[in-house]
Amino acid sequence: MIEKSSTPTLFEWAGGMPVFERLTELFYQKVLNDPLLEPVFKHMSPEHQLHVAHFIAEVLGGPTWYSTAEGSHFRMVQKHLAKHLTEQHRRRWVSLLLETADEINLPDDPEFRSAFVAYVEWGTRIAVINSNSDNLQMEPDEPMPKWGWGVPGGPYQG
């Protein structure tokens, strides 16, 4: 019999899927009202914010809704190809996301926030790199990243 760890995942610690769905709902409202980001996101599908909520939730230890029904890490990164995102876009995106996280009272303890911010920094830098390329810098079967409580080993740990 395998025992479940008593340590909650980052997803559980944050409060579960409703928290991530609320985070992305409010965040993308800000994005669409931001003069720098609005041109990049104005044509996003109505499902975009929900897909992003499911993606982030899965990365942080939540259910595999994104990878089993909505896409893959490869497909998420692929959506950024040739968007020509700049460091200024990335910083604004991160700033608005963290501002929204504070507004919805996402846990602000140092351990959670350091893990959350580490993932956001990593993910947005991957997006910028691939947005300025015509070819993805990854393999199609690359696994979903998995983020935890400061565990060494990188985003693809098992």
Rank of each mutant, 00 (worst) to 15 (best):
D109K: 10
P145C: 04
L60D: 02
F116P: 05
V128N: 08
M44C: 10
W93I: 05
F116D: 04
S114H: 12
S45G: 12
F41R: 09
N135K: 15
G62R: 04
H73W: 09
P110C: 04
M144R: 05
K83C: 07
D102R: 14
M138E: 06
P143G: 02
K30W: 05
H54E: 10
Y119C: 00
E103L: 13
S95W: 07
K146A: 07
H43W: 02
I129V: 14
E121I: 08
A69W: 06
P63C: 01
A115T: 01
V128K: 06
P35F: 04
D34N: 11
F112I: 04
E58G: 00
D108H: 13
I56Y: 05
I56A: 01
P46I: 01
D141S: 12
L37V: 08
Y156W: 15
L85A: 13
A82K: 15
V151K: 08
N33T: 09
Q88S: 08
W93C: 12
F41G: 09
G153M: 01
I56N: 04
V128Q: 07
V94M: 09
P145F: 04
M76L: 12
E38S: 12
H54R: 11
R92H: 02
V52I: 11
E99V: 13
D134N: 03
D102Q: 13
Q137G: 08
G154M: 05
A118V: 01
G148F: 05
L98R: 12
H84N: 15
G71P: 12
R125H: 10
S45A: 10
G61K: 02
G61H: 00
V120R: 00
I126Y: 00
T68R: 03
V77P: 10
G158E: 08
K79H: 13
D108K: 14
G158L: 10
N132L: 04
E103I: 11
A57G: 07
A82C: 06
H73V: 11
T124F: 02
V151T: 12
I129E: 12
W65I: 12
P155V: 04
I129C: 09
S114A: 14
M138I: 15
Y156S: 00
D109W: 02
W65S: 02
L98Y: 06
T86E: 12
A101F: 06
A53Q: 02
A127R: 06
P35Q: 09
Q88N: 11
K79Y: 13
Y66F: 13
P63G: 01
T86W: 11
Q49I: 02
S45V: 01
G61T: 02
W122A: 07
W93F: 14
I56E: 00
E103C: 10
R113L: 12
V94I: 15
W65F: 03
E121T: 13
M144T: 09
H48C: 01
H51L: 12
D141I: 07
H51F: 02
H43M: 09
N130H: 03
E87G: 11
T86Y: 14
E70C: 01
G153C: 02
G148W: 00
K146T: 08
G61D: 05
